[in-house]
Amino acid sequence: MSLKKISEEKQNKFFRKKDLIIYILVAVVIAAVFLAVFFSEDNDAPEGIRIIYADEVIFTMTIGEEGTILSDVVTREKTYFGYRITVATEYGSNVFDVNVKEKTVSVESADCEGGDCRHMKISKKSDSIVCLPHLLRVECTDGVNRPVSG
């Protein structure tokens, strides 16, 4: 086959192997960027929380900062992982752990009847912690809570 013919052959072949690899690489990179952005949006960690007692905000915090205590029923102490927030009202006591690194809030202890809140945790903006016997709620300041009724 003459060089001229080879050159013509190459021109006629629309996709060569190397071309295909480049196309696939470009597609993979775009897909990876898309997936990374999409899933990071979906699992958004909370940026801030507020604690509400009997419909009054008693504590607010941007996770990573020490937060603002708005009522005498709240006390706060620094821990290895973040902060321990204690709410002691006439109805009882709840202790919340704020993990700054993981951006989570969990219930360390609660003396409410039933203790349902002890299983609740905030790790996404849509999460909340509710302790109805103690009229307490922990919500994300930058998220939306699920609607409840009752």
Binding site: E113, D116, S126, V130, V144, R146, P147, V148, S149
Partner: peptide, 30 residues
């Protein structure tokens, strides 16, 4: 928590399809 008006939902975190999940809290068991 006694009066709630729903529009539509568009997030799987909160419901299914256009429906919201609305959790009903038991009056005594909480």
């Amino acid at each position: 928590s006694s009066s709630l008006v729903l529009l539509k939902n568009n997030s799987d975190d909160y419901g299914s399809g256009e429906n919201w999940y609305v959790d009903l809290v038991h009056p005594t068991r909480q």
